[in-house]
Design a protein around this nucleic acid. Structure first.
Ligand SMILES: [Zn+2]
Ligand SMILES: [Zn+2]
Ligand SMILES: [Zn+2]
Ligand SMILES: [Zn+2]
Lengths: 132, 132
DNA sequence: ATAAATTTGTTATATTATAACAATGCGTAA
DNA sequence: TTACGCATTGTTATAATATAACAAATTTAT
């Protein structure tokens, strides 16, 4: 059978909704705790939903934080090319969508000629608010 | 007292040696197992050594793998600006040292004008060997 | 309708990382 | 020198993150 690519299961919808509502990246277990009333009882249910949502480009994982954010790029068709801005102080995370940057990285070729079909870039610094 | 910045403790030397010898990224617990004969008995000892070595730019953490590699850039003075090439098939990881790339990223400025003092970039694809 | 395959639920456990405190070493002021 | 303070290292315990394994339910194919 061919995989359904445009339908979200109940668990996936619940998890996505929580992540979209959040103002900051959410950890898997904090998601688990906040959806237990809605019938999601165990880690694998959360992790499966997260995996699926990542594959669909609906959410991204912030690797340096083991946390998850909703994609802000109108459902990222390029979930394999992600860039984030992370504040070291308030931990705010925002997805960078900068055509020049993504073009540059998508076309990047190293010395050996290896080409890449996926990248993840995480920038760290102080956000405007925290710099003051 | 001011911090010593150029001296490695015994544990740090042992951990660094193991990582430098390895041909692939090492996980913290695999490091722990392989240094237990040498007197390192518990996770915090390994994690402390890793933290220190990271700060010194002697090693880097591959965030997407929770694994550690030795810096190949002659002791990275720019441990805060890292880029890696990761093969999805054989899991080979190599540090990218490309002046153009690092310059581009170091100077990158997003829409809001936020500037960054640190970044980590992980590229994924198939290495030459695995592409054949 | 039945069997096969896929997805979801559940239990258990593996893996990664840190908290908390004790023991040790080390510089310094009396 | 000694004894006090502070930093580093060792140790125990536990927290946080993630997956394996199998059962139950649902969907799909025959
Ligand atoms: Zn996105
Ligand atoms: Zn901030
Ligand atoms: Zn390096
Ligand atoms: Zn390869």
């Amino acid at each position: 059978m061919t995989q359904k690519i445009d339908f979200l299961s109940k668990n996936q919808q619940i998890v996505l909704e929580i992540i979209e509502k959040a103002k900051e990246p959410l950890k898997a277990y904090s998601i688990l705790f906040s959806v237990q009333k809605r019938g999601i009882k165990a880690p694998p249910q959360v992790y499966r939903a997260l995996d699926r949502l990542i594959k669909l480009g609906k959410i991204h994982k912030i690797e340096s934080k083991n946390a998850f954010v909703a994609c802000k790029n109108d459902s990222c068709t390029i979930s394999n090319a992600t860039a984030f801005s992370i504040c070291d102080s308030c931990e705010m995370v925002t997805e960078i969508s900068n055509p020049k940057l993504s073009k540059y990285l998508a076309n990047f070729q190293d010395e050996t000629g290896m080409r890449y079909n996926k990248y993840n870039l995480e920038f760290f610094g102080l956000c405007k608010k925290c710099k003051k």
